[in-house]
Design a protein around this nucleic acid. Sequence first.
DNA 1: GATGTCTTTATGTCAAGACAAAGGCTTGAC
DNA 2: GTCAAGCCTTTGTCTTGACATAAAGACATC
Lengths: 245, 245
Amino acid sequence: MSHPSIRIDRSSRLPLYSQVAEQLERAISTGDLAPGDRITNEVALAADLGLSRPTMRQAISVLVDKGLLVRKRGVGTQVVQGQIRRPVELTSLNEDLQRAGQDPHTRVLGCRPLEADEHTLAELQIPSGSVVWDLHRLRSVGDEPLAVMHNVIPLDVIDLATVDLDRVGLYEAMRSVGIHLRVAHQRIGARRADAREAGLLGEHRGAPLLTMSRTAFDDAGRAVELGNHVYRADRQTFEVTLVDR
Amino acid sequence: MSHPSIRIDRSSRLPLYSQVAEQLERAISTGDLAPGDRITNEVALAADLGLSRPTMRQAISVLVDKGLLVRKRGVGTQVVQGQIRRPVELTSLNEDLQRAGQDPHTRVLGCRPLEADEHTLAELQIPSGSVVWDLHRLRSVGDEPLAVMHNVIPLDVIDLATVDLDRVGLYEAMRSVGIHLRVAHQRIGARRADAREAGLLGEHRGAPLLTMSRTAFDDAGRAVELGNHVYRADRQTFEVTLVDR
DNA sequence: GATGTCTTTATGTCAAGACAAAGGCTTGAC
DNA sequence: GTCAAGCCTTTGTCTTGACATAAAGACATC
């Protein structure tokens, strides 16, 4: 029954449950809370920290949803026995790489308005005849090409002509004009590289590629981006954590 | 501002928030709640149904976490504009296929105890020298081979010798001995088929395969299963829904 | 010695209320 | 006519309190 030391700051604008969740997560990642450890029960923890039980419970729920803790009624809450993995998050690949200490850069292969085809209209739920941005980019790390990225974005979402996409990530640009991404559906598959992809990625034609198609929605539920990316299979995998309720 | 009709049954053993969440989800899937619709605010909904606001909020949270609804402070809660997709869940592929109306069958290629190697020991967090089940299976639908599956399971988790794995799914078998899966880490990638895989899957050597490695944990946080599966890329993709909090 | 029942412990569910903060709209001043 | 201030709506956060239910162990009984 491990009892991590947690300090809360009621003057902070960060929510209390969030402060607790962060410190619990840090305790797990530093090994302060070891895999298999049972943490103090919710009621006692809440009392110790001067919090109400729902608040404490919400903090724990954050980590349960992340797959770091498991709850069992009548028993307690324990740390999952797995090593910490960084799952796919709703951030751009660019930001992922930057955080990982890599030095990604991006070359714009093409960016122009285009009349949307049937499939695009359906995915983005926009009226027939709509015009969208058609953006092709190549992402690399150092000298190594990593991914060929194709994005489709409704014209009224953002004016890409005013954005320097060689230097600014797409998601970063969208955030800067007040678009908050909330939900994304992704479909991950694999196939052979065609001639164009092989050339861009420095692979042979027919090499296995990891494919990812994404539809992203903002906080008003509107579809704001379509992504259709292919990755060199030897350079990229996707991590996913599933939690059963 | 759409106001779905919801009935709650206080005598049911199903939690109230769960009843509401289910009916809301059904309203969305039937189109009763259309994409883009704003639903009645939490306070009014709770009052109408005779529930407290936290309970109503919990119900909505279920659907927000599933990516069906988005909330925006000061504005309201809206239905996401995307078509409904069935994401990867913590069920076996076998059950997924059965639900989809397919007729999957499984052939056991090999199942025997084996001393665990370094990597397995680390992933399962078990002491050096431990013995594990080493299970190889081929999954098909109709005449079409679909996946080559390799699982590793600690000996003390379940006695596979007493299970008819040609007829019973692995997860089903584990549930029947009281093991409740709660969390899984999955890593999805791609590579070329080797000779053995190509033969089993009816593909050419070098064909692109979708790979999935999974570590699954039970409700006590213990690692109980390792999966290392390869899928024919033309027959399988993975759906994932990401939600930003 | 095996089985069943009670007690303890901890999470699961639910209620009622309060204040904070963000977004959007209206109103008013300049 | 434009911009800013203020108001209203709605979700976000937090508190206190209560009862239900599953798991595990202790205990008594057969």
